[in-house]
């Protein structure tokens, strides 16, 4: 088990469908300082691929990604 990063902000997107988790994540990341980490929780199974595409396009870093009964957890570190 890898150590989970410290979370600076948490965003709950459970129950929301595409594209809301992406749009809310963008808004939340905009409000963070570079280097800070956001944890986003989603239940939309499409968010797994979509979040990967989003970080690849925006350049932010997916530090960790887990799945539990509550949904998918994405840990994203804001880059510059």
């Amino acid at each position: 088990m890898t150590e989970m990063p410290t979370i600076d902000h948490e965003l709950d997107c459970r129950g929301l469908s595409c594209p809301l988790p992406i749009i809310k994540t963008k808004k939340a990341i905009d409000g963070l300082a570079p280097g800070q980490t956001l944890r986003m929780i989603a239940t939309d199974p499409g968010s797994v691929n979509d979040m990967a595409a989003w970080v690849s396009k925006t350049g932010h870093v997916m530090v960790a990604q887990t799945q539990d009964t509550g949904g998918f957890n994405f840990y994203i570190r804001k880059v510059g």
Partner: peptide, 12 residues
């Protein structure tokens, strides 16, 4: 609407 808002959220 979905594509435009998502694109904008991806920095486009």
């Amino acid at each position: 609407l979905i594509l435009a808002t998502t694109a904008a959220a991806m920095g486009m």
